[in-house]
Structures are given as C-alpha cells and as structure tokens.
Design a protein around this nucleic acid. Structure first.
Lengths: 230, 230
DNA sequence: GTCAACATCAATGTATCCAATTACGCCATA
DNA sequence: TATGGCGTAATTGGATACATTGATGTTGAC
C-alpha cells in the first residue's frame, strides 16, 4: 500500500488511508479470506497496514454501514455472520429494485455495452470454475444496470450484492454445473429483451430470475453457512 | 447531552459519543436548523459537544453514509445540498420498496397498531401546521411498515425519508391546505386496505400515492430549493 | 494593470498517549 | 466439584499533539 501519489491516473482514495484500508478489507471479505464471525482487532489491522488505529476504525465504520462488519461498542468488531433471513430479505428487495434499475438502464444503453453484455453472457455459459462464474455473473448484472442515471440505486444494489456474496458462492457450489442451465436460459432471455429494449419484459424476466434464486435458497437452507439467531 | 448513564432505560448509545453526536446532528438537519450546503467544521462541532474531533469525525462519517452530509477528503464537510434529481430517484425507489414493506407488514400487524394508524390518519387531516403534518405523516407511514420482519428494508426506507425531508417540507408548503384533500383520500384508502389486510390493494394504492407525489414534485420544480449540478 | 508564483494560514488527516470498559482467569467457598 | 466474586490483562474509546493538504492573500515581474 503505497503512500506517495500514483503517476498513472488519479487515485480516488489518494491520501485517505481509511478508504484504502476499507477497499482492501472489503475485497478480502468478498473473496472469502475472512470467515464470517471472525473477530477483527484494530491493532492487528493497524500493524498490517502500517498505520495507527485511527484509519482502521474509520474503515471498520464504513464496512459496518455496508453490512460487512458488525461493531459492538467497547467490545470489538466481527466479520458479519451470514444470516439466511437477512439474505432472503435482501433478495426480496432486489426483486423490486433491480428490475427498476435495468429498465431505466436499457433506455440509455449504448451498442458497445450491449455487445459486452452478450460477451459476458457467453463467458458465463463457458465458465467452469465457481469463482469465475461469480465474477462474471456479477459483472454482467451490474454492467446491465450501469446506464441507469440513478447513482443512489446503483450503490444500493452493489451493497446488496456484497452482503449476499457468500450465499451466492455457496449456492453456486450447491447447484453445480448441471443445475446452471436454468440460469443460462434466464440470462439469454434477459439479454434478448435488452436488445429489444423492452422495458416491461426485462423487468418481469429479471424479477423471475431473482425470485427463483431466492426460493431455491430458502428451500435448500444452504448447508455450511451458519444461520445466526444472534 | 448528558454523559452519565441514564437510570431510566438502557441508553443504546451510552458511552459512545459519536452516536450521540450523529443523532443530534441528524435531528438538527431534519429540523432544518442547518441550511443545505453549509460548511461543517469539525473543530466547531467538537467545541459545541465538548469533545475532541475524533467522535465528531466518526459522526460525520455516519451521516455521510446516510446521505445527509458530504465529505471531501482534505477539504471538509458540508450539509448535503438538496438535489431534485436525487429526490426523484429516491421517490422512484420508494415506489418499489415501500409497497413491499407495507404488504409484508400488514400480515403481522396487530389491532393496536391499526387503531393507532387510524388515529394518526385523523390527526393528519386535522393538522393545520406544516411541521405537524410532516411529523404525523412520517409517523403514519413508518409505523405502517414496522410490523414487516425486514430490518434492512426498514432502515433503508427511513434513510430515504430523511434525505428527502427538505423536499417534503417545501412540497407541503407549496400545495397548502387546499391541496391536501388528495393526500387525505389516498391515506383513507390505504387505511381501509390495511384493515382488510389486502396486500395487493395496499401495494397499488401506496405506489400511486408515492408516484403521484413524485410527478407533482417534478412538475413544480419546487422554488426555493437549489438544484445542484455539481 | 494583470497574472503568476510564493508564502502564510487554516482545516483536515494521522500518530501517540491516556482512560474506560470489557473479558478472562484465578481463587475462595459452599 | 461447581459456582460466585474479584483482580488483572487485553482491547477499545477518546484526547492531545503533530504532519499534510488545500486555500487565501500578497508580492513581484512582465
């Protein structure tokens, strides 16, 4: 983590340690480097990043507001535990807001983006590793929303994708390659509706896509992920 | 702002200065004590609350994540400017998520809450002062969602009500008492649908309620509130 | 007279140090 | 042996002091 300014392109977080720490921690959590429920000690992180505890504390605050970390006053910080109830709740919210984002987005979407989406769609079908699938699927959906002139909504959606990342990983392992044909079909239909710029159709298709996933999550109860009652 | 522990009931934020400061600042912003765009100096707040700048900084961070304050690294903090585009965006989101919250809520709602809602509904119609209307209207809607077992969603909704507070105030002044009959009628219909626990109907009615308000906001362009390009 | 470069200042970002709270382990006792 | 109280250690919350960045005003040259 360098401190001097980068010559290649402006570093948005240049000079602000806490942002850099938050970004790095967030990436680590999403990559699965930290087990949910793990205690996070400020001093330990401070040493790792070569700073004092102050920027670490601010980074942890940011991550808490994103739902990735839980802070308890005078006690400590923990990596947020996975909670199937929270996950289901978030999926219900996503069923409502992501169709909105997509329908707004396709009104402004340029040809290059549509081509890129089609490319991603094909890569997703060709993927063999779960981690590849997760990365590509995320890029496909988030890119499809990007042309919507709704920054607040897009930030919310990304936050929700982050907090449910562990469940998507577990779910992907669960269904395996043979269960993916449904997802591929849904993606193809969505892709086609995007091409037609059919706002109503994409909304229904995307809602079904998310809703079906939620119901499957609820039905399978995902072994290996602790369900916290606190 | 007392520092000793309160004997009457556990103070959730006891011992955590930053939460107390954030709560107080948030209330001040929502009450209109700070003009949007006003610069906020850490040292000034620290002096006012009798603390150092550390808790102030953390409070400002919290408020930033709620959209009430804007932080610029190495520069400072400002009370978030009102932005008609952001307001419209949030209303579009609310049109999707609040019907979800309400339909989930009425499934669990007890009789006492329904009675309280009816009471609030009547008080809203009887209100003469804008500030009273704002307070009652907010309580009515947020209470109607409260029985939904969706904490993340409810937190989001409250956040949105906060960031658009200034617009609701301006809007209320704009339409005056004579324009309120539409709102009252909508509230009555929603109230009746809640009584019947008609999930589909409440969703449509609430969506219309929010959507109509949004369109009126967009049409009137609310004089007196700066529209920032930034 | 205008513009540019520099110096000074003010406000934020960070490090170090101290205080307060919590957690844990030990010991005494029933 | 199990349990309750107490004391110590570890960790977080906050205050003070210093470093760094950005803004402002002045001065000099063209």
């Amino acid at each position: 983590m360098r401190t001097e300014k980068s010559p290649d392109g402006p570093d948005k977080d240049a000079g602000v340690r806490s942002h850099a720490i938050a970004t790095d921690l967030r990436a680590g959590i999403l990559a699965g480097l930290y087990a949910p429920g793990t205690r996070v000690r400020q001093e330990e992180l401070a040493e790792r990043y070569g700073t004092s505890r102050i920027p670490v504390r601010e980074a942890l605050r940011d991550l808490e507001s994103e739902g990735l970390v839980v802070l308890v006053p005078n006690s400590g910080a923990w990596i947020a535990k996975t909670d199937i109830n929270e996950c289901v709740e978030i999926y219900k919210i996503r069923e409502r807001i992501e169709p909105l984002a997509l329908s707004e987005s396709i009104r402004n979407m340029d040809a290059a983006t549509i081509a890129r989406l089609a490319d991603l769609c094909a890569q997703i079908e060709a993927s063999t590793e779960v981690e590849d699938f997760l990365k590509l699927d995320r890029e496909f959906h988030l890119l499809s929303y990007k042309a919507a002139a709704m920054p607040t909504l897009l930030a919310m959606i990304e936050r929700f994708w982050n907090t449910t990342q562990h469940y998507r990983r577990a779910y992907s392992h669960l269904i395996g390659k043979e269960g993916q044909w449904i997802i591929h079909s849904e993606h193809r239909l969505i892709m086609e509706a995007i091409r037609r710029r059919d706002g109503m159709d994409v909304q229904h298709l995307l809602e079904s896509h998310i809703r079906r996933t939620r119901l499957q999550l609820q039905a399978n109860d995902l072994p290996g992920l602790a369900r916290t009652g606190k």
